[in-house]
Amino acid sequence: MLQLIGKRLIQLVPTLFFVSVLIFSLQHLLPGDPALVMAGEERDPVVIQQIREQYGLDRPLPMQYLTWMGNVLSGDLGQSMRIRVPVLDLILEKLPVTLHLAIMAMAIALLIGVPAGVLSAVKKDSPADYVINVVGLAGISTPNFWLGIMLILLFAVNLGWLPAGGYVSPFTDLRASIAATIMPAFVLGTAIAGVIMRHTRSAMLQALASDYVRTARAKGLSERVVVWKHAMRNALTPVITLGALEFGTLLSGAVLTEQIFSIPGFGKLIVDAVFNRDYAVVQGVVLVTASIYILLNLLADIGYILANPRLRS
């Protein structure tokens, strides 16, 4: 197992290198000049030239990349061109907010999706199976922004049970934090729950039709042991992959939900940086997001081995 993890870590080095080149290259293909944005409405040529020299925008792209990559390796992601704040400080401020929201959303998705998928497979072609599939399809098809607005109208405006938006750290007030994040987490989690349910159902149907399950039943084991110990353990592999990828998507793709519920998270930081042509912030944020995706894939590989001992050989 340690040998496998070591090989995966070695493979991360060229992957991260190509990702960094891609991020830097595509960022400079975006239309617009950050120096013109920073210069303001007057756009004095002298000021524009000073800005380009200050941030190295007047140098060739290969030199800009080497300088940026050298700083990244030393832990310096640069400084925001717009608000003059270190990019690392911005990421450390915004990432925990979205991470908290993503963990709650994934917990909701797993608590709903996995048991529903198992029940749907066990009760195949029964009324329960049809109801679960309809509800799962509805969860996938419902737009996040619409569901978020409906929840705000119901629980915040009409009933007054929950706040309409904002964010409270769990380390400040746990109860207020849960109240502020439960609705956006539910909005994000329901769509993922539908996807996880369908994948779990498909994997469970294949597992329940396999020879080792028939053998377990022939030995007289209870149906609960057959389903949860034998079939479920082997059906977890695609669910682990999906969970890792969806968690990465939550970290980078919760923009609309954060906007609706006024949550100052990672998604809003990315959007603002793109609109303001803030190269340093965009590069730093996308690099961190890509690194998280790669790390989640590594964790998924480890999860395969823990869930299915046969893969250890």
Rank of each mutant, 00 (worst) to 15 (best):
A300P: 13
L256R: 10
V274G: 11
V239T: 07
K229R: 15
V282R: 00
G265P: 15
T237A: 12
L298P: 13
L296C: 01
M232Y: 11
I260W: 01
D278Y: 06
I302Y: 10
E258N: 06
F247C: 08
L256Q: 12
L236S: 11
L296A: 12
W228R: 14
S252V: 09
A231I: 15
W228A: 12
F266C: 04
F247Y: 13
V286T: 09
Q259G: 08
L245Y: 09
L295E: 05
H230M: 11
F247T: 13
G265V: 09
G248L: 01
K268A: 12
V282W: 01
K229W: 12
P264Y: 07
V286K: 01
F247M: 15
I270C: 12
G243Y: 00
I292Y: 01
P264M: 06
V239R: 09
V288K: 00
Y293I: 04
I292M: 01
S262E: 11
L236H: 07
L242T: 07
T237P: 10
G248A: 04
I270F: 06
L250F: 07
A244S: 05
A280E: 01
I270W: 02
Q259V: 15
K268E: 13
G265R: 02
L299T: 06
S262T: 15
L256W: 06
Y293D: 02
N276C: 04
L245S: 06
F266S: 02
I240A: 08
W228S: 14
V227Q: 10
L295V: 12
G243D: 02
L256H: 12
A231C: 13
I302W: 08
K268H: 11
V286I: 15
A300Q: 13
L299Q: 05
L245K: 02
L245H: 05
A290I: 00
F266H: 04
G243F: 04
I240K: 09
Y279F: 07
E223W: 11
